[in-house]
Design a protein around this nucleic acid. Structure first.
Lengths: 158, 158, 158, 158
DNA sequence: TTTT
DNA sequence: TTTT
């Protein structure tokens, strides 16, 4: 369909370590919850309050491998993706819906907190090298299923 | 919390007329489903396919009144807002979750299709004046509960 | 560099027909100006006013070919891209700067107005078939120079 | 005009300390350059390269005061705003154009680097308390000149 | 002119 | 369940 846009932009922190699954067909997918928090002033009391929203993030393929290596509970991320609601059947036979953010662009804005994960590779958080740079960069997944114009890229970077 | 962003940008079409409710405390809220559709090529068959995603849009206060007046099944909208998942209890006592897009900025990109709604005011769709301009403009809700800097605005438009 | 985002989202109308150039190396590039307009109320007079901002849009490769075929003065577009300021030397030898929006995603939200361009192919605007659907869809350019994860895509559009 | 969107989203670092000016009419405005950097692979050499783009950010009123207090050379920021090109006359009488990002939403993603500014208040960077939390939060400017629906906000953060 |  |  022409003329449609479905875009989500989030900056927030992971609520727990990602879950990574490898599928029979060779696919790899990672899931994690991410919190965004907004502040506002309660107008009846004048108090400062916060509201946290939780988002289910799903990443496939190469991005999932990046997540598996570098992203942990507490990591602050920029996530760009699109909304997708999938249906499933619960134990009572009812159709249920879960809305997820299918990420196609991630940027790490902080390392994870240092004591969050028990299965980090040693030199990531257990050895306490918090100032060591992470090798991660902004990673963009192939735009799928978006239409790809299929043009060869030349060497000029624009 | 500092450093959080929760933003959704959609362009799509309403799946049905909005539902508008007036609350006891004077509030007004409108809900409607909105479809976004993406095209992709099935790599096994080479066929062109489409996927439609549905989104629950919620608008409050002045935006809800605009929606009530001008937005109908079939209308193409630009929606900017934030993701919010609310929980509720179903008939079996289970906690269920519904994710909605809480809109704070709407722009009408088309009039509704002309045969969608039976309760339109006459000169909106029934009288068939498809080229008449809609009085709607981009409407922005007060950023709430975002922090408001509370500064007085002067007359200079920047 | 890790952790950088440069994103522009515009909805507006073309101020004139696109200029399309084919380069010696086979590249193709299209340029056009696009207007966005915002309304506000002048606080001293209470009058409703409008401000129009003009943006220089640049598109390369396959997107440029789409623009050449379907986009005209007056067309309403959704443009997603990134900001880029390039420098050049004017006739007096001074360095000057021009900021452009390098588009990597376009969606046509309307056809061009019907009397804008004299070189449209006949059945586009001259023959007056304003209700004929345009063949354009959302077209995404390959993300370049963004890092590509290079993963093979499977057939599941999840 | 109805149906227009002009939105910029950037994450990057300040190239120098902000310049803050107080106007005769009581207004306050801050300007600073901000860098975004993207990586790509040179296809002829296979080398990893980077391109940095520079953006002129302008903030008014309360946001300018926040910038004056907390933002410094090196600070990593999330900036949301809109594009605006203003014209001016250079010393040779030529009309020149400068494109700026007029920010209406800022989020600090890092403190400034610790040795950048000589006029920080002592406990900000000079005393070297890099883990002390900054009081900044996401600050949103009143949406101006966007249409404001003018509704009173109630206490429920929906 | 930033940052990693 | 995160973060400040």
């Amino acid at each position: 369909m022409a003329g449609s846009v479905n875009k989500v932009i989030l900056i927030g922190n992971l609520g727990r370590d990602p879950e990574v699954r490898r599928l029979e067909n060779g696919g790899i997918v990672a899931n994690f919850p991410m919190a965004t928090t907004e502040s506002y002033t309660d107008r009846s009391t004048g108090e400062r309050k916060e509201i946290t929203d939780w988002h289910n993030i799903v990443v496939w393929r190469g991005l999932a491998e990046v997540v598996e290596k570098y992203v942990r509970k507490g990591t602050k991320l920029y996530v760009e993706g699109r909304l997708k609601t999938r249906s499933w059947t619960d134990k009572d036979g009812n159709t249920r819906y879960t809305t997820e953010v299918l990420a196609d662009n991630l940027t790490m804005l902080s390392r994870a907190d240092n004591n969050s994960s028990s299965y980090n590779e040693p030199n990531y958080s257990n050895q306490g090298t918090p100032s060591a740079p992470s090798p991660i960069e902004t990673i963009t997944s192939p735009d799928y299923p978006a239409t790809n114009t299929g043009n060869e890229l030349d060497d000029l970077p624009f």
